[in-house]
């Protein structure tokens, strides 16, 4: 049975699109046929992060409106056969996300894919609500700072009240916390919230901690999901998070300050 996963946060700029791309690629690498959909109509970014911006012909809105069929709009990733990208429109706005149209597209995607990742726009308005409405699971992307935690809390509340599962009295959307841009050294200095603080406030299970890493910016700019970068701590942290999502137990890495190696200390490099 296909599973719909929404990647959401309430707050903007916390790493939803990076996470959507990394998670979709991670699931594909694990052998699951996965599609990642951009719900951020008018502010299309996912195609850039996935490196397929030159191949967009038709988009999500075209399919909702019946101007194109699904297979015309889906873009197959060049790096992995199991990975597909469903870009959105840059010229339209969120009002183009008609719920019955989205529902029809979702049903059609469920016939072809094991996992459907919905990259939500920021906010709690129509775009974000539509992105989470059909979800079976949710990944709550949170930065270790108070405003992000509060917005995450708000979106968890919305998942529990406005999702289709909530409206139909079905089992609730299962929510997972993903803490991104985590810098253990700054936590030690008291400049950032610690993992346990965030867990305590949000009281949902922790899927993973993604360390702040320059490889993330590089990955976005080159259009390569960060999980393909095996040397990157962030990439490895995402691989772990995907494994936990699939039910495996993995020890949390990157939550303690890194011990600087002898040579690094000697040459004063961070």
């Amino acid at each position: 049975m296909a599973k719909v996963i929404v990647v959401t946060s309430g707050k903007g700029g916390v790493g939803k699109t990076t996470t959507s791309a990394a998670f979709a690629a991670g699931l594909a690498l694990r052998g699951h046929k996965t599609v990642v959909i951009d719900f951020d109509v008018g502010l299309r970014n996912l195609d850039l992060v996935m490196g397929c911006e030159r191949r967009v012909v038709f988009d999500f809105i075209n399919v909702i409106n019946g101007d194109a069929n699904l297979n015309q709009a889906l873009i197959k990733d060049k790096r992995h056969d199991n990975l597909f990208i469903f870009p959105t429109s840059q010229t339209r706005d969120k009002n183009a996300l008609k719920r019955d149209g989205v529902e029809r597209v979702m049903e059609e995607l469920k016939q072809q894919f094991e996992y459907i990742i919905c990259d939500s726009p920021a906010g709690i308005e129509h775009g974000a609500i539509t992105a989470l409405y059909f979800a079976d699971s949710a990944i709550i992307v949170t930065n270790p700072e108070v405003s992000s935690v509060r917005d995450s809390d708000r979106i968890i509340g919305i998942l529990a009240s406005k999702s289709r599962r909530a409206e139909r009295n079905e089992p609730p959307v299962d929510v997972h916390l993903l803490l991104t841009r985590y810098d253990p050294a700054r936590v030690t200095r008291g400049e950032m919230l610690a993992v346990d603080d965030v867990k305590e406030i949000l009281s949902i299970p922790l899927l993973g901690v993604i360390p702040e890493s320059e490889s993330v910016l590089r990955a976005s700019n080159t259009g390569t999901p960060v999980v393909f970068d095996e040397d990157s701590p962030a990439g490895r942290a995402y691989v772990d998070a995907v494994a936990r999502f699939l039910g495996e137990t993995r020890e949390m890495r990157f939550v303690k300050p890194e011990r600087r190696s002898f040579f690094r200390a000697l040459f004063g490099r961070a």
Binding site: I124, D153, R154, I156, G157, I158, S161
Partner: peptide, 8 residues
Amino acid sequence: TAPVRSGT
């Protein structure tokens, strides 16, 4: 019995 979330 469930946590009361922000905005509720």
